[in-house]
Computed example of a mutant assay.
Amino acid sequence: MTTSSVSAFVQQLSAVSSVPGCNNFFDNNDPANAQRRSNLGIYLQDMMNRAPKVLLLGEAPGFRGMRITGVPFTNRTMFERAANRFGLFGAGKGYALPAEAWAVAAEPTATVMWEVLAELEFLPLLWSACPWHTHVPGQPLSNRTPTGAEARLGTPFWVSLMELFSIETVVAVGNVAHRSLLRNGLDAPKVRHPAHGGRSGFKRGLEELFVTGAVPSPPGR
């Protein structure tokens, strides 16, 4: 994956129009979205250098997480603190937050996700089946499970990432992602989503995939 391919991917993502109940926080209609596009580009470039072969595909961004930062499964506090266990995010990495971030509480699911990945010493590429913020129409500070149609619109983007990163294994994180993969002929394994008390199930699911060989074990395990 080259710099130009990262830029092309982000541009393609930004070209999708927002509609009531489904906000594309990368589009060109909000100046703050330029910062989110930049953050996503930094993340993808950094991951390109790490060459992950596993993609964890979540459901959709939350209004306190990727909707604010532009990066899958992150929240504003990750950009404020030191870099995490993998050397991602944190001060000095080039990420910046739009002004609106300071009024929004941090998404707890992102914290749980990265805690578990650090414990497992496992660094996959992260993305969502529907990469836009789905919410109750008229209530932008809410989260809504994406419809099948919304997930289908997101399919070309995770397919592109699989190709750009030469992904060998995809793991669905939750039901929306699993259905999206099945619709496209991928009988991928599924693990519990870490949200809403799902931490232990999420971790246990990944550990089981390592044991069975469905997902390559991280080095040192």
Rank of each mutant, 00 (worst) to 15 (best):
L125V: 10
N23G: 04
V19P: 01
R36C: 13
A34H: 10
Q139M: 15
N23A: 14
K203D: 05
R144C: 13
T111R: 06
E107K: 06
Y43T: 11
P140W: 09
R221I: 10
S5T: 14
N175D: 13
P20E: 11
E107T: 02
E115Y: 01
A214H: 10
N33V: 05
E59C: 06
Y95V: 09
I167A: 05
R152D: 15
A99P: 00
V104T: 15
M48K: 09
A151R: 01
L186Y: 08
E80Y: 09
L120I: 08
N39C: 12
P61Q: 00
T212W: 09
C22G: 00
E163W: 02
R85I: 00
A214Y: 05
M78W: 04
V19F: 04
Q45E: 14
P189R: 05
I68P: 09
P216D: 11
M47C: 04
G87S: 06
P131T: 08
T212F: 03
I167M: 06
R183E: 14
D46R: 15
S128Q: 13
S180M: 02
P218F: 11
V136G: 01
F26I: 09
N23D: 14
E115S: 12
F86D: 01
E59T: 14
A91I: 12
P140M: 07
A105Y: 10
V170R: 00
Y95D: 10
L181N: 07
K203W: 01
R64T: 15
L56Y: 04
F157C: 11
E208W: 02
V215D: 08
N29G: 14
E80F: 01
V6W: 00
E121C: 06
L40F: 13
G70F: 06
N33H: 15
P124I: 03
L88P: 06
F25H: 14
P140R: 12
V16I: 13
E115N: 15
V54W: 01
T69N: 06
A177N: 06
E208F: 00
V116G: 08
T111S: 14
G154M: 03
M78Y: 09
R221M: 05
T145F: 06
Q139W: 13
V54Y: 02
L181H: 04
G70T: 12
R183H: 13
N175A: 10
S217A: 15
V16D: 08
L40R: 08
W114E: 04
V16C: 04
T77I: 06
L13K: 04
V170H: 03
W132L: 05
L186M: 10
H135P: 07
E207A: 13
L126Y: 05
N24T: 08
D27A: 07
P194K: 03
E100M: 11
V173P: 04
